[in-house]
Computed example of a mutant assay.
Amino acid sequence: MFGLFGGHQPFGGTFSQAYRCYPVSFIDKLDAENGDKIFLPPSALDRLASLQIEYPMMFKVENRRGGRHTHCGVLEFIADEGLAYMPYWMMQNLLVGEGDIVHLASARLPKGQLIKLQPHTKDFLDISNPKAVLETTLRSYSCLTVGDCIALHYNGRRYFIDVIEAKPAEAVSVIETDCEVDFAPPLDYVEPNRAEPPQDSVPEPAANGAADQAGPSSAEPAEEEAPKFTPFVGSARRLDGRTVAAPAAPSASQPSGPAAAAAARAQQGGAGPGSSQAPKRPAGKVVFPAGNRLLAKQQQAAAPKPPESKPEPEEAKFQAFSGKPRTLKG
């Protein structure tokens, strides 16, 4: 008896049987959850051997009521007749429960060249080397089918991953093949919002009518003139402590600087219309006016003379060797 429907198929055909499916936990094979291999009855092995099915054996599993299908391999032929034990994640993909009927058919799958996977949560990105972990996990798999959701166990946690693309076919073999693996963003991944740089606002030009109404008053105010430097504006002091009359503050109209000093010297020198200019002096010589010397002599003569001090008697000077001579004989 082969499966629920029994009967023999002609040699050289494909293997096709129907079984009631149960999870691998029913036969205490929990390690089989980390893969895609199922358990079939011993009669299936006899039939497969007579049909000369190529190794490794692969099967297409269908839930014809739900319209779902996937592919798998076989691990052992120890199941009871009419029953097939498979990983629970595979039963979830097929939308079948315990005791539901599934149809198996032998299949030949090409070697995979590209597989694109999409994790369900972004926690999968926290794994230090996800590709190495995935490579270790896929050693327990014989094939992958687009639309499957496989379970990856790592560091005490379980990660669900969808197969969203496969090349060169919808279902490919991953046994002894150099397959490229690509990852899509996780289902719960949210692209961070990037703040756009602020755009400089350009003021719009005023209308012609508004500009005419504004008139000259709308012109921009002129820049304030910087304060000018005015030298020697502090208060004067005399060395003898007498008060000095405060000089008049220079007005803005009066010249300052070297020009002002030259003008002051010209006024003091009698540059007016009624005075005569000072005679030119030869360069490199110092000339003292005669009137100034005469005035200095008169002031010196009129000044009272200090009293003459009498010379004090000189103290007796010390004279060396002024005593009487004496001899040693006495």
Rank of each mutant, 00 (worst) to 15 (best):
P168W: 01
K310E: 09
A246R: 13
G35V: 02
F232L: 13
Q319T: 15
T137G: 02
V202A: 09
G13S: 15
S276F: 03
A132T: 07
P130N: 03
L94A: 03
S217D: 13
T230W: 15
G99T: 09
E135H: 07
I161W: 01
T177K: 03
S16V: 07
Q298K: 09
I101Y: 03
S128T: 12
M57Q: 10
R265S: 13
S43M: 06
K310G: 05
P304K: 09
P279H: 07
E308C: 06
A206S: 10
G35C: 03
K167G: 07
A236G: 06
D28E: 13
R326V: 15
Y159S: 00
Y189Q: 04
P56W: 06
A252V: 03
P258L: 04
P41A: 09
V174L: 01
K310C: 03
S142C: 10
M1Q: 05
S256K: 10
K111S: 06
K285D: 07
A262I: 06
F26I: 04
A302C: 04
A262V: 05
G99I: 15
Q92I: 02
F183C: 01
R293N: 04
P56D: 03
I161D: 00
P130L: 07
A246K: 14
V190S: 08
V244E: 15
N292I: 02
S16M: 05
P192N: 02
P168C: 01
S251K: 14
S173V: 00
D200E: 14
A290Q: 14
L104W: 15
L152H: 09
I164G: 00
G272S: 13
E315R: 11
T136Y: 08
E314R: 06
K29S: 11
V172S: 00
P216T: 10
A263Q: 15
S25I: 04
S275P: 00
S50T: 04
Y55D: 08
A226Q: 12
Q199W: 02
E98T: 07
D212F: 11
K111L: 04
I161M: 02
A79F: 05
